[in-house]
Amino acid sequence: MEKQLDRVMDDVLSNPGVIGCVFADHQGLCLGAKGKASTDSAGIIGAITDQAAKLEPQHKSPVIVLENDTRTCIIQRSGTITGAIYKNI
């Protein structure tokens, strides 16, 4: 059932610099995680997207980038699915 999502996650991970990805549904429940990404992050990722969307309600689906010295986490919602990609800088 989740073969398609598995394929998408493999595609994402094959990009240079990408070290992990995680996907959550509209309830913040984890749909899948691969690489250096935790399934526990799914809820937080959904919550961050909800809060960020409130900043500009007239625009939909903001892209949120969290960055530290070594890594970035890029989050975006598409429809009911929220995805987060972890990349090395």
Partner: peptide, 11 residues
Amino acid sequence: CNTGHILGLEK
């Protein structure tokens, strides 16, 4: 409410 966020409170 975000169910995944609630589950994340466990830790």
